[in-house]
């Protein structure tokens, strides 16, 4: 005797085994499956045939998992961006600590607030730019995004290397006016965030279009 609930439980296990980790898509897919089965049974199929037809038209587990995984990778890029922002704030604070002209805690606190505030403002503007990028071809955005990330990482390391060289070589110590390491390195951080977000977003859009047409 066919047990529909047992069959759906087995189907859920197969989907989880294929890699759908988050519960929300699975709940939604199961809801779809039950709607389809009810409809097919009303049309005259027996429950087992209806279940098989519904599973078949819902699609294979692997391509579905890949599509949902792209959604997770978007959440991943947000986490990466937040980590980069955190590093940027720590780095800015460290630079301020190195700066000889800052002598008391109040100034340090004020400087830190300034760094956090500019990070948040420019970080938010990155999302506005992300909306604008949709006007351009996805493949080009993805490539430019990747190139931007490389430039950002190399540039940031370059600023850091310059600074460390200048700090350790007494002949080159130029005081607090040079290098403008904080603004320069922050600029590379923004470049990294924008490039990385644009790259992943464009890649996902490209991937979704390909998957829907395959």
């Amino acid at each position: 005797m066919f047990d529909l609930d047992q069959a759906i439980a087995d189907w859920r296990r197969r989907m989880v085994a294929a890699g759908i980790r988050t519960p929300v898509p699975l709940e939604e897919l199961e809801s779809h499956l039950r709607d389809d089965i009810e409809q097919q049974v009303r049309s005259g199929l027996d429950p087992q045939q209806a279940f098989e037809a519904a599973v078949n038209s819902l699609g294979q587990a692997d391509p579905l998992t890949k599509e949902f995984a792209k959604e997770s990778s978007t959440r991943g890029v947000i986490i990466v961006n937040l980590v980069v922002i955190f590093i940027a704030v720590c780095y800015g604070s460290f630079m301020m600590w190195l700066n000889n002209t800052i002598t008391n805690h109040a100034q340090r606190l004020l400087g830190l607030m300034g760094i956090v505030l500019t990070t948040l403002i420019i970080g938010s503007s990155a999302f506005v730019l992300l909306l604008l990028h949709r006007a351009f071809p996805r493949e080009r955005v993805r490539r430019i995004g990747f190139a931007g990330m490389i430039v950002a990482v190399v540039g940031w390391l370059g600023v850091l290397a310059c600074l460390l060289l200048l700090r350790t070589n007494p002949c080159l110590q130029c005081g607090p006016s040079w290098p403008p390491s904080v603004p320069l390195s922050q600029m590379f951080v923004w470049l990294f965030i924008i490039s990385n977000s644009a790259r992943v977003s464009a890649k996902n859009d490209l991937g979704s279009a390909k998957a829907r047409s395959s």
Partner: peptide, 16 residues
């Protein structure tokens, strides 16, 4: 005709 399951990632992306 869509592959039924493929609609959901699209809906999720549109929601995001």
């Amino acid at each position: 005709q869509w592959t039924d399951g493929m609609l959901y990632p699209v809906l999720h992306r549109m929601e995001r």
